[in-house]
Write a protein that binds this DNA or RNA. Structure first.
Lengths: 143, 143
DNA sequence: ATTTAATTGCAAGTTATTTGCATTTGAGTA
DNA sequence: TACTCAAATGCAAATAACTTGCAATTAAAT
């Protein structure tokens, strides 16, 4: 079982041959300290302090996704959210109030099965698993 | 086990109290006949024939997601794709060439486990599971 | 056939994302 | 430490994506 690497923005950037710039460091540290995936808009806000330029942020996001450092998730109905790839967390989201809880299940065996079953695919590198439902608070509210 | 309802756009619209308009019918039939999830842009193109107005399309998409008729997925790195909710399919996508294959695994027991484990959540309505990897063609191409 | 609320199309916003290019900067090397 | 250079940035301008208001249309119920 692959050990889950502790998140070190500096090291992460180096590993992938990226320069360590203030924006990128801020971006990765915001993402790794967040308890939930963040949308572009949220990231823009959170990195304002570092003087984040929007264009630069988009470029960084693109590069990070490309490099597999972060993952896009479809939690909102029409925009993607990003999370650290190495957090490897799955979530439950309340479709009523938006509360997000982490569910650290391991579905790696399922991923393995998927690769074996497929005639077309040879390698499975990643998987995403997300749950949607109603949290206790909202269940009560409806009654 | 819930039986997987065959997809009938007409019926689907009625069930949810939607009027059966040409655009909506076209939209649902495009989505249910597609072997892979489609982005907004792809949907706009595919429904051009019916004289799809973009604003109307967006409104329909929003309403359908809201009603749980379709699901958004984060397959592309920065835009969501939509699929019929009742197709209930999971996918493998090649991160190299974009090929998408369906993997009809059932992870409903995992979903159940998630609900039981959670202190916060009472009900789990939906789950999404997607795989990413390299297809045989692209594995060969790299060598 | 008539009525009415839902839905649409259009045009005009607004927001999100991309691009080109001149300037700056991180990091390797002398 | 100073020097070099490709990588990365900031800015401004362009494009694309998405939203909104409203008058006109239409599905469906009577």
């Amino acid at each position: 079982m692959k050990k889950s690497t502790p998140i070190d923005p500096e090291a992460l950037l180096m590993e992938h041959g990226f320069k360590r710039t203030p924006l990128r460091l801020a971006l990765l540290s915001v993402l790794s300290q967040s308890t939930k995936p963040l949308t572009v808009t949220e990231l823009v806000k959170k990195t304002k302090k570092v003087g984040a330029d929007t264009a630069t942020l988009y470029r960084a996001l693109g590069a990070f996704v490309e490099a597999g450092i972060i993952h896009p998730l479809a939690l909102q109905k029409d925009k993607v959210s990003y999370q650290m790839a190495n957090s490897h967390a799955h979530h439950i989201m309340c479709t009523d109030c938006g509360t997000i809880e982490t569910v650290p299940f391991c579905v790696r065996d399922i991923a393995k099965k998927a690769a074996q079953t497929s005639k077309l695919f040879k390698i499975i590198n990643e998987h995403r698993l997300e749950f949607f439902g109603t949290c206790r608070k909202c269940v009560r509210a409806v009654r």
